Amino acid sequence: MIRDSARRIRDVRERLARETDLWVASAGDGGVPYLVPLSFFWDGRDVWLVTRLSNPTGRNLVARPRTRLALGDTRDVVLLDGEVTAYPHDEVPAEAAEGFRAKTGWDARGAGPAYRWFRVRPTDVQAWHEEPEIAGRQLMTDGEWAVGCGPDRPGGTGA
Rank of each mutant, 00 (worst) to 15 (best):
A17C: 11
L53F: 09
P65Y: 05
A25W: 06
T57Y: 14
L49T: 01
R3T: 14
D11Y: 03
E83R: 13
S39W: 07
D73M: 15
W128L: 12
L35S: 11
R59T: 08
K103M: 10
P37Y: 06
D152W: 11
H89S: 15
R119G: 04
D107V: 03
A25C: 07
A135C: 09
G148D: 02
M1S: 09
G150S: 00
D90I: 07
D4E: 07
G136R: 11
L61Q: 07
A63R: 13
A25L: 03
G105E: 11
G158I: 13
P151A: 05
R68K: 14
P113I: 10
W106T: 10
G148Q: 07
E144R: 11
E144W: 11
I2D: 13
R75I: 13
G143R: 04
G31S: 06
W48A: 07
V36K: 14
D124T: 15
I2L: 15
V84R: 02
D90S: 11
R66N: 12
V77Y: 02
T51R: 06
T123Q: 11
D81F: 07
A146G: 03
L35P: 02
S26K: 05
P113W: 09
N55H: 15
G44N: 10
E83N: 10
W128T: 07
E14A: 14
K103V: 12
T51L: 04
A108K: 04
P151Q: 07
Y34D: 11
F118E: 00
T20Y: 12
A25D: 00
R68A: 14
E98P: 00
A86V: 04
T51G: 11
R45Q: 13
Q126W: 01
T141V: 12
V12T: 01
D11M: 07
W42K: 10
E130V: 08
D76I: 04
P154C: 06
H89I: 13
L139S: 04
V120F: 03
V62L: 10
G99T: 08
A108Y: 01
V84P: 00
A135V: 14
A97V: 09
V92D: 06
K103I: 14
R15I: 09
G58S: 02
V24Q: 07
A127G: 01
D124Q: 09
A108P: 05
L69D: 02
N55S: 10
G112R: 04
V12K: 03
R109A: 08
A27P: 05
N60E: 09
G58T: 05
D29A: 13
R119L: 04
L139W: 00
R59S: 03
L79I: 06
G150F: 02
T51N: 07
H89D: 14
V92K: 05
G82S: 02
G150T: 00
L35T: 08
R119P: 08
R8D: 14
Q126V: 09
N55R: 10
V77F: 01
A27M: 15
D43L: 04
W48F: 05
E131T: 14
P56Q: 06
R75M: 12
W23G: 14
A135Q: 10
V77R: 05
W117P: 03
Y115E: 15
H89T: 13
L22S: 04
R13P: 00
T51I: 05
R64Q: 15
